[in-house]
């Protein structure tokens, strides 16, 4: 059995104020996370106010875009085509929701090493997804 990845129509992210740098970076092929200049902790999803210390001095930093799959599920029946939703733990230490792409979805495993790739949404935004290394 094989379930080869097919491009899925992704909904737009509908960014809130403050999210713009993240999506400008993804359009440029870069993945950003947030680090707090006050306490030094990184966090995801990105916030304007640090969830560890309440500092407003949070900074966008570029992720190396590599990590490993924390968990995943292949949605078989609910969408028009199968797709793999996942959480990937970045090497920087934070996990993010994503899709696993560009592979046979039936071969995806927890702990698998992955690297970021970028896929467009229906309205022209770009979302970070991950493919096996």
């Amino acid at each position: 059995m094989a379930t080869i990845y097919e491009a899925r129509t992704m909904q737009d992210p509908e960014p809130n104020p403050g999210d713009t740098p993240y999506f400008e970076a993804t359009a440029d092929g870069r993945l950003l996370i947030k680090r707090c200049n006050s306490c030094g902790e990184v966090h995801f999803y990105p916030r304007a106010v640090c969830p560890y210390c309440q500092s407003a001095d949070t900074q966008w930093v570029e992720s190396g875009g590599r990590g490993e799959i924390y968990s995943f599920s292949i949605t078989r029946k609910a969408g028009p085509i199968p797709y793999a939703i996942a959480f990937v733990t970045l090497d920087e230490g934070v996990a993010m929701m994503t899709n696993i792409v560009d592979c046979d979805l039936d071969t995806i495993r927890i702990g698998q090493r992955v690297r970021v790739v970028f896929k467009p949404t229906e309205g022209g935004y770009v979302m970070p997804c991950f493919a096996p290394e």
Binding site: D19, P46, A78, M96, T98, M127
Partner: peptide
């Protein structure tokens, strides 16, 4: 903005 485009459903969240 960081989740909805990936197609999170109640179903696949519990599946993870």
């Amino acid at each position: 903005p960081y989740e909805t485009p990936y197609g999170p459903l109640t179903l696949n969240q519990y599946a993870m």
